[in-house]
Design a binder for these strands. Structure first.
Length: 508
RNA sequence: GGCCCGUUCGUCUAGGGGUUAGGACGCAAGGUUUUCAUCCUUGUAGCAGGGGUUCGAAUCCCCUACGGGCUACCA
């Protein structure tokens, strides 16, 4: 094996938003490249003009950036092989198609859609394998069945044509795949794929091989759905005389839907209530909006971490990885062979872990944005303190609100069940007495409150369960929340007393 | 239909001839906590089936089943 520089590419088609399976493919390419000290390129495969979707390319780039996957070459980052959009490389491909025709590895085909359909119907009626291949190409309208004069006449008349690969007959193609090992296919199973379309654009098969060669790609890491066309690609390299430049291949297992079987799709996200896209997507045609991980409150690093472990594992018990750690630990050899079902519950767990790891101050800045949206303006020091008290109870920053709203707004109602269980006949009296104690308490600190409350309970022989829960009910409105003394200090003496008095009025 | 790929707890996975089949998520129970949650402890649950090979298969081979992918002038 020659020691070429590692160069990999992520080559999406701008036909819509990037699905998390695509993000994972990009991630594995990136991790592999960085681990090997190589380059990661982004190439836009927009050879199908009919499927072009406005905004999709920008979406793809923004998604990669959000994930921290920076490309070394690609749109917006020109390198020695620019341009990186296939539509801008259009003129390149024709010459290779012509080269294949001249070397006898490809041919012109003039069949109309109707003629192709007719052929398929005919073969299917005979229970044969309906494809354009060695068994059928001889009965179709192409430069193999037409003589030279007729072919030239067709071309000169401006008749639409495609260029098809002339698949060799009955040849065993043996290929090596890094994740799957040896894969063998007999060419008699393969058809004469269209390489060059009548609209003047190459198909994926030609374009990807030509570009991978020209861009000096060393490893092709892509989804498993491409495995069936691997022999075609290998044969293409050979036919173009690039045998010594065939990249190594790695076909990644698919991401499956959480319930049942099958490839994860956009519909599943809508149905099961979790995003399948990294970023929110607003479809320009249908106006349909699909949710994204970013907008749902996921941290980019948690999202990347979760995705990295879906199909790859380090062989150790470590589950939490920064991008740098992923780069260091990654290898294609440890990529699994079978598809992975996406687990929304585990995704939340990852975000929880990252939320716990974040500095309270950083989380407070994010939470403060949510507070301002709700019209709540508090000093960041106070917000930070609140975050420190409740962040281990939630998975997302936005959930902090549900756990901390009582800090900002006095309870409007009191949890029915807790009232019934803990609010007794003598509760108002006890609370009134405690209010007096608190009024005179100086300074109003966690330690001070703790001592005062315990002294009271001891002197009056009142149980903690009775007093504390009644107090909590008054301040929070429910039997939940962080340490009561902390809540009291943050609320301040006056607010505490006001809330207790209100509770006595309302509940009794 | 044809071709290709796959199959270890519900899920993500370790394990690649001799293991009490390990970890994580989830779930359950207990503990801690004045409450809820966190946290800690314990538990729950798996080698798709059948044949070989072998002294011995989760592990190697074959078959079957099941699942998936591809089978466009889409990528």
């Amino acid at each position: 094996m020659t020691e070429k520089k590692v160069r990999v590419r992520f080559a999406p088609s701008p036909t819509g938003p990037l699905h998390i399976g695509g993000v994972r493919t990009a991630l594995y390419n990136y991790l592999f490249a960085k681990k090997q000290g190589g380059d990661f390129l982004l190439r836009i495969e927009d050879t199908d003009q009919n499927r072009f979707v406005q905004g999709a390319e920008e979406y793809i780039m923004e998604s990669l950036k959000w994930c921290g996957i920076q490309w070394d070459e690609g749109p917006g980052r020109d390198g020695p092989h620019a341009p990186y959009r296939q539509s801008e490389r259009k003129d390149l491909y024709r010459q290779y198609a012509m080269q294949l025709i001249e070397s006898g590895n490809a041919y012109y085909a003039f069949d109309t859609a109707e003629e192709l359909e007719e052929m398929r119907k005919r073969i299917e009626a005979e229970k044969g394998n309906a494809q354009y291949d060695a068994t059928t190409r001889g009965s179709m309208k192409n430069s193999l069945t037409l003589n030279k004069v007729e072919t030239v006449a067709m071309l000169e008349s401006g008749a639409p044509y495609v260029v098809r690969f002339k698949m060799p007959e009955n040849e065993e193609v043996v290929m090596q795949d890094i994740v799957r090992g040896t894969v063998k296919v007999n060419t008699s199973q393969l058809d004469d794929k269209v390489l060059f379309k009548s609209d003047g654009m190459p198909t994926y098969h030609l374009a990807n091989v030509v570009d991978d060669y020209l861009m000096e790609i060393s490893h092709v890491i892509r989804g498993e759905e491409w495995l069936p066309s691997l022999p075609l690609h290998v044969l293409l390299y050979r036919s173009l005389g690039w045998e010594s430049n065939v990249p190594q291949f790695a076909h990644l297992p698919l991401l499956l839907k959480p319930d049942g079987n099958g490839k994860l799709s956009k519909r599943d996200g809508d149905r099961l209530g979790f995003p399948v896209f990294p970023l929110m997507w607003n479809d320009p045609k249908s106006g349909e909006i699909s949710s994204g991980y970013r907008e749902s409150g996921y941290f980019a690093d948690a999202f990347v971490n979760m995705l990295a472990l879906l199909g790859w594992n380090p062989g150790t018990d470590q589950e939490l990885f920064s991008m740098v750690e992923l780069v260091n630990a990654f290898s294609l050899e440890r990529v699994g062979k079978s598809g992975s079902k996406f687990d929304p519950a585990k995704a939340k767990w990852f975000n929880h872990q990252y939320l716990l790891k974040r500095d309270n101050k950083d989380v407070a800045v994010l939470f403060d944005l949510i507070l301002k949206d709700r019209g709540v303006y508090e000093p960041i020091e106070k917000v930070t303190r609140i975050v420190s008290l409740v962040k281990d109870r939630v998975n997302f920053v936005h959930e902090i609100w549900e756990q901390s709203a009582f800090f900002f707004n006095a309870p409007e109602s009191y949890d029915e069940k807790t009232v019934q269980k803990k609010w007794k006949e003598d509760t108002p009296d006890i609370l009134n007495q405690v209010t007096d104690v608190l009024k005179n308490l100086e300074p109003f600190t966690v330690e001070g409150i703790d001592k005062a409350l315990h002294d009271y309970m001891e002197q009056h022989e009142v149980g903690a369960g009775k007093l504390m829960i009644a107090l909590r009910l008054s301040l929070v409105g429910a039997g939940m929340g962080p340490d009561l003394k902390e809540i009291m200090v943050l609320l301040g003496k006056e607010e505490v007393i006001t809330r207790i008095e209100k509770a006595i009025r309302v509940i009794s």
